[in-house]
Design a protein around this nucleic acid. Structure first.
Lengths: 158, 158
DNA sequence: TGCGTTATGTCAACTGATTGACACAAAGCA
DNA sequence: TGCTTTGTGTCAATCAGTTGACATAACGCA
């Protein structure tokens, strides 16, 4: 009789975890699908949007970032990022500059074109954020962000 | 002077939304990457795991499900699901049965092999859930699940 | 000087995801 | 009966993601 509640609890935990990751899977797919629609006019995707957004951060806007740090920031593989960067490079949205301090490094930086595209993207991006998060209060959004952040940490250690 | 706080609030909201979707992007990538490691011994991926899990639900285990309902349940495109199903079909994990009631429909069902694979996968799946969610309490997991569910709803309307 | 390490780039192979388009059989209705 | 709609399958093109492997240039140190 002592086993029953333990088993039941384990089954409940499994169920919660299962739902959680399934919703994560669905929400992520939807984010890419719907988000891409909002920036489709620029010929961009959500992933490219993430890269440009990373390069548009004030701290790195002028100096650019190394490929290595960009990989760590985005959490994707070097080979995957390279393809993304090549596509953005072809469109002249970014440029690869040799690092003066370290000849092995390339500093990835937004070009003037890239900056203007990013500026033009702000309106549709804000529209997307507003539409997708319309049913969540700011507090709930913050809570979700923090929980996702901790989930990310847990996943990294798994 | 009345504009300033409004602008500041808008910037804050943008920032929260930005972080939220960026974490969703990272967490989802990590889930696939790490999760696939746990079921790699079976030659499976997280997506295939999702499909098999959907077919293993008690309500559909015996009768199977139509492709149409599976598409709606998983939230992926027909063409994508077809490729997934073909791969699972080749491995004899699932079977496509003609629906008696509707000749156009195919009922997708786990085979005996598929059921045994799913049973064998339970241990690594539980290990993955436990490791990835170690830092979150049950209450937090439930909260995260509910918030993701509402985010999914919002994204679907975006 | 020479050797190991690091940063980057690229090729290959595979899986997952999308949209668009075409095909076909069966259902449903006029 | 005939026409439209529905459910499924497939081909094509494109983008994103992974791992593994190899190449190259530059840094760092003995």
């Amino acid at each position: 009789m002592a086993q029953a509640p333990t088993k039941a609890r384990a089954a409940q935990q499994y169920d919660v975890a299962n739902r959680l990751f399934f919703r994560l899977y669905q929400a992520s797919n939807l984010m890419h699908k719907q988000g891409t629609r909002y920036v489709d006019a620029f010929g961009a995707t959500t992933q490219q949007w993430a890269v440009i957004g990373a390069l548009a951060r004030p701290a790195v806007l002028d100096a650019g970032v190394t490929v290595k740090s960009l990989i760590e920031f985005l959490g994707v593989s070097r080979q995957n990022l390279a393809i993304l960067l090549n596509r953005l490079d072809e469109r002249q949205w970014i440029e690869r500059i040799k690092d003066k301090a370290d000849g092995r490094s390339r500093r990835i930086r937004l070009t003037a074109v890239g900056k203007s595209v990013w500026a033009a993207m702000q309106a549709p991006i804000e529209a997307f954020y507003g539409a997708a998060l319309a049913d969540l209060s700011i507090d709930e959004q913050v809570m979700l962000y923090r929980l996702l952040d901790r989930l990310k940490t847990g996943l990294a250690k798994a």
